[in-house]
Amino acid sequence: MSEEARGVVAEVLAKGEVDGVLGLREDEGAVGPHYFRKGDDLDSLVLSPKYALPLVLRWFRLHSPDTRVGAVLRGCEERALVELSKRRQVDLEMIEVIGLACTAEEAKECGCVNGSPTNVMIGTPTEGLPERREFLALPDADDGARLDYWKAQYSKCIKCYGCKNVCPVCACEVCMMADHGWVRGGSLPPKFATFHLIKAYHMADRCIECRECEAACPVSIPLTEMYGRLLRDVERRFDYVTGADPEQRPPLLTTLMDEPILEEEEEGGG
């Protein structure tokens, strides 16, 4: 598929409508994000492992808002852009998405249920994704076993903030997880469970299940088991699917009739 991707990227660059294309490069034995320009040798372009490219696009927008760029993005990454645009963190007009369809294997590994980007230019859209995400079976809530499970999981936390730093949609200017009013500074592990519940709650109407947070977590806390469940709740209650429609307002920012709330704009979590 890399070969195909090189051709597609070369074409996009040749058209000259973008300044460059953000993708992945294999170099010096390591794979990382890279910005390909017209005329660059594209042999080093690769497609995996995936990196949080929407995060890089956020930095682009912050430091060079007038540059129009292309980006090789998977389905979840495109959905991240949609959520970011709702929060005015990226400008969709300034990004040409070069859609990359995950292989069936990749999709299975991620437990993806949401599928390919809208405009697939590399690979073929995966068919037959499961209807519903398969969650781990959580222990019973009644006898406290479920709470114990989360206590054990969250007590592994080394407070690296990787789950926040890497998350493409965690884009608040001031993060409540780092605010001493909410979470005591310096204690390790952070006390159960405000630190983690802040993040979880804030993800309920914006997480796009790219699972970058879990990949970044050095102690393998199954973070999206919580986030993903909340997403399903939000979908059920408010008929809202993250990352689908740039025009749909996040439900926690609208009235009971889905009208925008005028009173205050989002701060912190929403």
Binding site: G29, A30, V31, G32, P33, P49, Y51, A52, L55, V56, W59, L62, H63, I158, C160, G162, V166, A215, A216, C217, P218
Partner: peptide
Amino acid sequence: VGTLPSKTHEISRGSLC
């Protein structure tokens, strides 16, 4: 402007402190 952990590195494996 930022830092990203290397995912292909044996020690960091996509994480940092």
